[in-house]
Design a protein around this nucleic acid. Structure first.
Lengths: 226, 226
DNA sequence: ACGTCTTACGTACATCGTACGTGTCGCGCC
DNA sequence: GGCGCGACACGTACGATGTACGTAAGACGT
């Protein structure tokens, strides 16, 4: 009567699939960090033997590419071409900020792995379209895209703490400032409060504004669309 | 007569030291990539047993921090305060480009590891000093520093190919463009030539110019020093 | 001569990625 | 029905890795 195991979903095992594996990996990374990711942990996560994963993923590298792909797919790239290009450009860069915020601990993996899908081309296409709409010529458009990418990239790595090298250490080592000789680092010491206070939102918008207004002031060959 | 082994350096074993270990690690990474780095490989590199390393380095993580520190120490931060701040700012950001170019395969490690030395504060101090010289107030100076850092960071990750995700895949997959439907990625297809051609220098300077000129146009409370 | 400290070494173990062989299940074909 | 066959989950096993731990050999003050 009730024991029809084959047709009625038994629930505990919703079939193993590449998508489920990738999702488990993403979850694991976000919960315990990228170092904690291992094929064995992922398998355990899914209640499955280790080698079963290899039926859907050729190797760990491919899994990581899957993770990168998954995250990039989360980019929300809705666009309204009737808006001025400045607004659309801001929206594009903000979309990066959004995913970086949603998957902070995945970022290292996302950035250091290739993405074979055309998904990875969407941001580039969008940026080029914007520059085109703004009236810039081809070579300039490419450079604009690269500059925007660079900023979006760096700002997010900074904000999410992926990059611990530069100014971030200023923020995380507040207690050791006392030992800093003000002679060698006068400005850092003087601005320690501002450095410690975090307002990533306005920090991000500040830099974005710089770029957009600079682009706006740039001479261009063709007339802009709006 | 000639066999005084203790005083005259026997050459093959110049004493094991943390600096030598770090240097070996850096060399190995640059030659074979970060994945190839293992304590055993480093030990072999130095003609030494594996565990001997642990007399100078508590664990692998500390070694990586040492690598990061070594690279950051290579930042050439000479400065001429008599120059206009724009020039000095350009020099600062270019210094990042220089090290990233010198140690491309170390960058991932450099960025994802903390640096405990005050060495890591030098760039921040310099950037803050520049913003101060330009006449910006404290909070704005901090934001300027962060924006410059973000760009320097992102631009270098892009250029050195550490980040393979965004537009870089456009450049590395030239052969597969034929299969791109021009309907979905019209601009990418149209600008494929510009995308493929590499002129990192001017790309970099383009973005840097955007930021500097935007900063220059910014209103500021105090008068600039020059 | 002798303890102590420093440093290089070797062994041992847990954990990792994954190559390979085995078992089970469902489905088309006779 | 029987039967072969491909897909998929599993278990075992091997090499490589990071490192805890014990050992030994020289340096040096007493």
């Amino acid at each position: 009567m009730n024991g029809d195991v084959t047709s009625d979903t038994p629930a505990p095992r919703p079939v193993l699939t590449r998508a489920r594996i990738v999702q488990a990996a993403v979850g694991l990374i976000e919960r315990e960090g990228a170092d904690a990711l291992s094929m064995r942990r992922v398998a355990a996560e899914l209640g499955v033997a280790v080698m079963s994963l290899y039926n859907h993923v050729p190797n760990k590298g491919a899994l990581l590419e899957g993770v990168a792909e998954h995250v990039i797919a989360g980019l929300e790239l809705e666009d309204d071409p009737s808006e001025p290009w400045q607004t659309r450009a801001r929206a594009l860069v903000r979309a990066f900020r959004k995913v970086a915020h949603d998957y902070p601990r995945c970022m290292t993996i996302v950035l250091t792995h290739k993405i074979d899908t055309q998904l990875g081309l969407r941001p580039a296409e969008r940026a080029l379209a914007l520059a085109d709409a703004a009236g810039f010529d081809g070579p300039t458009s490419v450079r604009i895209m690269r500059a925007l990418m660079a900023y979006a990239l760096g700002a997010q790595l900074r904000e999410t703490g992926v990059v611990k090298t530069l100014d971030n250490l200023v923020e995380t080592q507040a207690e050791s400032w006392a030992k800093l000789d003000a002679a060698e680092f006068p400005h850092v010491v003087a601005l320690s409060e501002e450095l410690a206070s975090h307002d990533p939102e306005t920090d991000f918008e500040f830099g974005l504004d710089l770029l957009i207004t600079a682009l706006d002031a740039l001479p261009r060959g063709r007339s802009q669309s709006r």
